[in-house]
């Protein structure tokens, strides 16, 4: 009896440890030999297709990191450019394994569409652009300003709500699309232009004299962006989520694409665990190898490197880290520890 019970328990343990979820996404990706990644159809700094057909950008690099974790090869990704309308259907129908496309995490998208956001990798939000000669240093100083905003966006509502809440009298001027909104600002029909912060930095580059416009540090709305997966494969969701955490943790630990080789010999326990030198069972628990996190960093760098290269100080956009700085360095990025 006791023997029988132990045998049963043993079988149960084995089952839990070795059996993959039925038709798991990770196994399908492995069988296919490449990751299918949904990106936007072209968004400066986030996903851009180069003349030679290759893809680059912040959202692109996340999929490359995931491919590196799975295949030890960041090139094993098929990018699928998707419109805002098609993106969630493409994910639901299984055409893509992951959506890495500046999508805001909301309740409706998780509970209503049956999706899961695997964390946040870019905190965006509504911001304000003014002319340099305007001495305002805060959005609270925009009283009596004329504000250009694109019609039909959440930004029109957001601006209206922000001004009402703060007893600011401002005139909202709406325009049918992005270019006409920018033109309104450039020609002086407005003193202020409002849009999501990342969008303002991209739009500013289109101005004849970009240096004459200043983007205020205020972020007045929540637009948390992150990778999205289906909600029927928790194992895949967990892997994607921890790849995001790993990139952030790498920056916090000081592991970079330049030093990832020597990091294996680090004496620091948290670096050794990150590299899979200690706690070598952590990667296999996610369904990947012990050096999974090191592979991601070797392929695309840590979070800070990815940010600066694509949208930060080494890119044309030059978006300050702001909210997307580590929690310990002035921002709010906070990844649970790898242990």
């Amino acid at each position: 009896m006791s023997i029988g019970f132990r045998a049963f328990a043993l079988a149960g343990t084995l089952l839990a440890a070795t059996l993959p979820a039925l038709s798991g996404t990770l196994d399908e990706v492995r069988k296919r030999g490449s990751l299918s990644c949904g990106v936007s159809m072209g968004l400066l700094g986030f996903s851009e297709q180069k003349p030679d057909g290759s893809w680059a950008g912040f959202d692109v690099d996340f999929c490359r990191a995931l491919a590196a974790v799975i295949f030890d090869d960041p090139r094993k990704v098929t990018f699928q450019p998707l419109s805002a309308l098609d993106r969630f259907d493409a994910l639901k129908s299984g055409r893509i394994d992951i959506l890495s496309r500046n999508s805001t995490w909301t309740l409706e998208r998780e509970a209503g569409l049956g999706l899961l956001f695997a964390g946040v990798n870019f905190y965006d939000g509504q911001g304000f652009m003014i002319r340099r000669d305007n001495k305002a240093v805060s959005a609270l100083e925009l009283n009596r300003a004329r504000v250009c905003v694109q019609a039909g966006t959440t930004n029109a509502l957001g601006a209206s709500e922000f001004f009402t809440t703060n007893s600011i009298t401002a005139e909202l001027k709406t325009y049918p699309d992005g270019p006409s909104t920018l033109r309104g600002f450039e020609t002086g029909e407005c003193e202020v232009m409002t849009a999501d912060n990342s969008g303002l930095f991209a739009e500013r580059l289109r101005l004849a004299r970009a240096s004459e416009a200043v983007i205020l540090p205020d972020i007045v709305s929540k637009e948390p962006l992150g990778p999205v997966v289906r909600n029927d494969d928790v194992r895949w969701y967990t892997l994607v989520k921890w790849v995001n955490f790993a990139l952030i943790n790498a920056e916090e630990l000081g592991v970079t694409s330049a030093n990832v080789g020597e990091a294996k010999r680090s004496a620091k326990p948290d670096v050794r665990r990150f590299m899979g030198v200690d706690g070598a069972d952590l990667g296999p628990k996610l369904g990947v190898t012990a050096d999974w996190a090191a592979r991601a960093v070797a392929a695309v760098g840590n979070y800070g490197e990815i940010y600066e290269r694509n949208v930060g100080s080494k890119s044309r956009l030059g978006i300050p880290r702001g909210l997307n700085q580590l929690w310990s360095e002035g921002g709010i990025l906070y990844a649970p520890p790898i242990r």
Partner: peptide
């Protein structure tokens, strides 16, 4: 360039 930024 010198600029105001968010900084907790």
């Amino acid at each position: 360039a010198r600029q105001l930024v968010f900084f907790r």
